[in-house]
Design a protein around this nucleic acid. Structure first.
Lengths: 211, 211, 211, 211
DNA sequence: GATGAATGAGTATTCATTCAT
DNA sequence: TATGAATGAATACTCATTCAT
């Protein structure tokens, strides 16, 4: 291991130390009421040091969200790659994964919504932003893949897998929570309504007796 | 119309003028980044005037939420009181009502979550707080009533109506969005997980082919 | 009584009504924490009306002080004009008068100090200012007259009557309280120190046994 | 000198720098009209920095008062501990000390009265409050001790030393100034009248010829 | 005259961010 | 690298005063 690499590794360790501290404080107080000094104290570092590893408060927050997405993706890949599970079992495993993410950090998922604000977006580095969007899409696709298998196997109704994946997410983090923000609402109004419609549709079918 | 009454009416008109302006600004910027001066400018009034009609920023915000809940209740009551609709049609009408509320103000519903923070709660007058809690409960109950009829008529599976109403809301405003906040999570952890579980359950049933 | 006079009388009645209300509120809350609205409510008038009778808050306050000085002067004149009292009895009567003023309004006397600030002075009409200064001087002179008689009668030590009157006031409202404010301190530094010196001197004599 | 100690010393230097600036501004403008920005400018610091050293405006003000009391105590202890002075000389030395305190800061002593308001008291840290009360009591006791010696030596009339100390203070900072505030007036009305009575009594004795 | 709704200037306090050490 | 003291912009809220009715 070269000296360069050792340094890089050390740097990464610090980043994680800060993210872990940030997670604790954000979870307790929410984004607005958490101060950088709170996080610094929790991480047993000085406020200045945080800025050596994160450009600003928003970027620190986004990095935290990213980490949770990463965790989710690992879980989803594990579910998908497991040949022992049939389509129904896979859905169950997805639900389990969602529960674990929720257990991992209930509030941060809610707060993830904070990221949507266009003001916040301006404060993020394009690279980080791209990474988050990439992982979000990836997680939806992984879930969709599972549904696709189910449809192909003939055990699920033949709705579009991506729509199902969206609804699945919606059930978890809230349709609107996930889809909203002025900008998205303006841009994707029709898509959003469509998703809501499908969602209510499936719900209705879930409570109706077969006749 | 007496002079007293005319004044009261004028006062109410001003309140509405402010609420409408506040809605616009909150929707665009979110609660934290909206300043009282922003709202004052939008309403073409001075900052001081806002405080003649609302005790503080939190109370102005809460009044806004209240207004949306009131609108929803009116719609729900209309659905319930209509004898021409059978259970299935009523669900459809509920969905329509939800869509309209969403159209009415997509972001404020999300932001309603902001109200949950105990810090915010301290700033509200007990009366306003009671009113909001009352209307929230009322809306859930109205939805539940509709499901109850469906179950009694034998067209819906016999899950508990209140649970169904919760899920219905959840689909709309987001399970976690609705249920969360540190305090609630600590107090109602089990109930929340239960709701999520039922919710996933119904979803699963919705996508599974009958075998 | 002409119509003009009747109006003038009515106007004076209103002024007194406001001053009485102001006294109550200022006594309870002090100058800074008392709002014009507080006073208006206490007087059962609207805030705007106060400004028909007093130029501003400072002038209202000063008018109140003036009234108390007027009361004191009446008492002092009564003491002085009473031929039945010898010098010692007159001092006792002065003390009684001071106690009654204190009873009349303990806090306003303290707050009278507020008037000294040059910022406040700028807000007063020259006429009102002159009146207050006039009455202050008058009250000192009335007290001094009493001491003069005592010195002439040979019952008091032959210190200058005005100095004694100053000390008498000083004992009551506080040497510095009465004399201070940046401006006065700069202008009258030597006089103030002199007064304090005499004051301590008399005190010392009061506690020393004759040898 | 350890690094810890050096830092502590540096911190104390800053506190003093701010207190000195605050003294200048408060003396010129009085408490209410002085803004934190005024003080910051005078200290050539930013407003935020003041809050690193003092919790709020009230606490900054109280710290200033504390400093003056500390100076007074040092002087009083010096007088008391000096075996070369007899009782009469000690009184003279006390007077000198009072004059010097007055020279040191005439207005702040007056303003010390501001501290009595119960609203202000709520904003102070209990520790600082206790310290001020402690020093106030200490200064009265030190003066009383001097009078006690005089009474024991038979050179002073045998009034209670503490009462004499109170009057001495009263002469300096004003009976009412020192004793007042709505609350104290309500609670200690009788004591206050008593003090005033003794005070006038001594004064009277000071101006009466022996007969 | 009387009203009281509206004004808007004024201020304590917070906190993300910087930078000399 | 790491520190943490210093910064100063930002903002909710108050209240003396005005003025249309």
């Amino acid at each position: 291991m070269g000296i360069q690499e050792r340094k890089e590794r050390e740097r990464e360790r610090r980043r994680q130390q800060i993210i872990v501290a940030a997670k604790r404080v954000f979870s307790e107080k929410g984004f607005t009421r958490t101060t950088m000094e709170d996080i610094a104290k929790e991480a047993e570092l000085s406020p200045g040091t945080l800025y050596l590893y994160f450009k600003n408060k928003d970027e620190l927050y986004a990095s935290l969200s990213l980490r949770i997405l990463q965790y989710l993706i690992i879980r989803l890949e594990h579910v998908n790659g497991n040949p022992d599970l049939d389509a129904n079992r896979k859905i169950d495993a997805l639900v389990d994964a969602m529960f674990d993410v929720y257990e991992f950090d209930p509030l941060v998922i809610i707060n993830m919504f904070h990221l949507q604000s266009s003001e916040t977006l301006k404060n993020l580095s394009p690279q980080l932003l791209a990474e988050i969007e990439d992982l979000s899409r990836k997680s939806i696709n992984l879930i969709a893949k599972t549904f696709k298998i189910g449809i192909e196997e003939g055990v699920f109704l033949d709705r579009h897998p991506v729509a199902l994946a969206d609804i699945f997410w919606a059930l978890f983090s809230g349709v609107i929570l996930w889809e909203s923000s002025k900008k998205i609402i303006d841009e994707k109004k029709d898509y959003l309504k469509q998703t809501l419609k499908i969602s209510f549709d499936i719900f209705k079918r879930g409570i109706q007796r077969e006749q």
